[in-house]
């Protein structure tokens, strides 16, 4: 059988995301002995980011990338990390945490199964810092700066920095940085290179925002349950191996980008007193975002103390 995989990512992106997906597809064919394969529909040609969960749930595609931060209300539990910025986990640790939570709290998987979805694997993003037009040494330098914001946690955090959150789409951010419509954008090195933001903003501030989550490699539940046991076992194992493969690719990419920054791209990497950022966690606005998640978790019947503890510095 040929399974379909839908992703918003263009094939030509040639980043850890697209290359690891390519690897996933090849491994699947290899490990099932050529009995099954996966056809990928790249570049959102079948479903845009916002359409993917519905498209997967109703079988438009068998598998696909769900960009979870787009759906805080649809997948509140699986978005835990997004509500807790900053948090101390690295990219690997975030993926590990997701696996652990799915194992320990059935509600995490239920949230997906109730929408006819099944998680094959998790793709966490790299650790984020702040890419700026000017050098930033401490929190006082950020007062009054315009900072690109998106999602649900950054606006409150940026306000706590006494800076101005400016909501921008990913594709607008390049131009906004270039034209100083914003001064800074939270992002990691590999993504900054991928979106070419580092062409127009030359200071990378090591603010410890933590790694973002990320994408769920999800599957239509019926397609998953319709697999024979052997194939399902192959897929389950592949999902675990995928995280290792992806983590290696992502790390290699970050190393390469940081070399490029030192060399021809000329991006200066600056340290930042991390305690100035973690101090902001006590801000009422930031706390309100976290409380919102906790109330959603309570509604879902999750006792979240251990989860929250993991996300504390």
């Amino acid at each position: 059988k040929t399974y379909t995989y839908i992703t918003y990512k263009p094939q030509g992106a040639n980043d850890a995301h697209s290359r690891s997906l390519q690897w996933f597809v090849e491994e699947f064919a290899k490990r099932t002995g050529g009995k099954h394969d996966i056809e990928v529909f790249w570049g959102g040609s079948v479903a845009a980011v916002g359409e993917t969960p519905e498209a997967l749930a109703y079988g438009v595609g068998d598998m696909g990338d769900i960009v979870t931060p787009y759906f805080p209300d649809q997948f509140p539990l699986n978005n835990a990390i997004g509500f807790f910025i900053p948090q101390p986990l690295s990219s690997d640790a975030v993926a590990e945490a997701m696996v652990e939570w799915h194992r320990d709290y059935p509600q995490f998987a239920d949230e997906l199964t109730s929408q006819n979805l099944h998680a094959i694997s998790f793709r966490s993003l790299e650790g984020y810092g702040l890419l700026c037009k000017q050098p930033i040494a401490s929190m006082t330098d950020l007062a009054g700066k315009r900072i690109r914001s998106y999602g649900f946690a950054y606006p409150a955090l940026i306000e706590a920095m006494k800076a101005i959150p400016v909501s921008l789409t990913t594709s607008d951010t390049y131009e906004a940085l270039e034209r100083s419509i914003v001064d800074c954008a939270p992002i990691g090195p590999a993504l900054a290179r991928g979106f070419k933001y580092d062409e127009v903003a030359k200071y990378y501030i090591e603010m410890p925002f933590g790694a973002s989550f990320g994408h769920i490699l999800a599957m239509n539940l019926d397609s998953y349950q319709g697999m024979d046991d052997e194939t399902r076992a192959v897929l389950d194992q592949l999902g675990i191996d995928y995280m290792v493969e992806y983590a290696a690719m992502l790390e290699a990419e970050e190393v390469k980008v940081r070399e490029l920054w030192q060399g021809e791209l000329g991006v200066t990497v600056l340290p930042f007193p991390g305690e100035e950022l973690t101090a902001l966690i006590d801000d009422t606005g930031v706390q309100a975002v976290r409380a919102e998640w906790e109330s959603k978790a309570t509604d879902a019947g999750v006792s979240f103390d251990d989860i929250v503890a993991k996300l504390r510095f």
């Binding site: 479903a47 845009a48 916002g50 359409e51 519905e54 498209a55 749930a57 109703y58 079988g59 438009v60 789409t169 594709s171 607008d172």
Partner: peptide, 23 residues
């Protein structure tokens, strides 16, 4: 290609998702 439900799922999202856009 993907059944009535699949088509309905895309119909249910494409109109809103396409227009709910700053661009």
């Amino acid at each position: 290609l993907v059944g009535f439900q699949g088509a309905t799922a895309l119909l249910s999202t494409v109109f809103f998702e396409t227009t709910h856009s700053f661009h």
